[in-house]
Design a protein around this nucleic acid. Structure first.
Lengths: 153, 153
DNA sequence: TCTGGAAATGTTATACAATAACGCCCCCCC
DNA sequence: GGGGGGGCGTTATTGTATAACATTTCCAGA
């Protein structure tokens, strides 16, 4: 649930990019930092708004390009059902995640249920389909918000 | 996969709406017909473009309102990763589907793997999360397009 | 050290997706 | 025949994403 410190995520991202021979430029780093520091997923335009140091915010392609890079490197995830982005909890290895999105507080939990994904992949392959990019998102209510609903003290 | 005849889907929709005491108006019917007749999912604006009988196409809210109704009635599905809509293959009962989306030809197959969804629900509940609306979509390549890739005769 | 090219960025404009807000009309029930 | 809800038309606006082209930066290789 709670994001680990953004600083740690950034250090790891730098390490991974060096290893892979790709460039974590200041812009990309800034986008990653914003996404990792936010408790909730951010839309591309929310990221834009927060990027202007003072006035003069960048144009949309700037942030979309950075996001493309970060997505390719597995450093952020896109939540298709929200048009929003979150930092990846485990960027060190490629993986297929499932996202639990709380409709009440907006926070997102990232699961990695490997048997589940194997099951899904198998079901696809059973009809001859070659899976490449899974999107598994579950809208609902997180544990904390459920407690609040029951006892709105 | 191949959609069943749109005519059949429409008859069933009329039946269901009568049963439920809701109104399948001409507009809603027209949107449903377009979505069911298309082999690929349609975006809201593609539907709009095809709704003008001759000239004068309707404004966006028209089609979005119809889609809202059809979604509520379980007659169409929305594919979040594509911003597009398809007719539901089994509107008679509420259900959670998984969608196999072919990146090559654009066609979509609708699975209903109930054990898979139970597994997903259980995984969510294990962390206290109350699931409400699942989104499971798999981008990849369908059987037919895989054969074409291997043997592009 | 120069230089050519790829990658990254800036900039402008535009396309595509979705909704807000308001008013009208029709239909059905009281 | 009056009231009210549901459906629809219309205008305007907000939000999401990309196309296309100019410019800069950085690094490898001559």
């Amino acid at each position: 649930m709670s994001a680990r410190p953004a600083a740690q995520a950034l250090r790891q991202a730098e390490h991974l990019c060096r290893e892979r021979g790709v460039r974590l430029t200041p812009q990309r780093r800034a986008v990653l930092e914003l996404v990792c520091a936010s408790p909730r997923p951010l839309s591309a335009y929310e990221i834009l708004d927060r990027m202007g140091d003072g006035a003069r915010i960048p144009a949309p392609p700037t942030v979309y390009r950075a996001l493309d890079f970060l997505l390719r490197q597995g450093l952020v995830h896109k939540l298709a059902s929200l048009h929003a982005f979150i930092g990846c909890a485990h960027p060190e290895h490629p993986h297929a995640s499932q996202f639990l999105i709380c409709a009440a507080c907006g926070e997102v939990d990232e699961l990695e249920d490997e048997p589940l994904m194997r099951h899904l992949t198998a079901a696809a392959q059973a009809v001859g389909f070659l899976p490449e990019q899974p999107v598994v998102e579950l809208l609902g209510t997180c544990a904390q918000c459920r407690r609040k609903e029951e006892d709105p003290s």
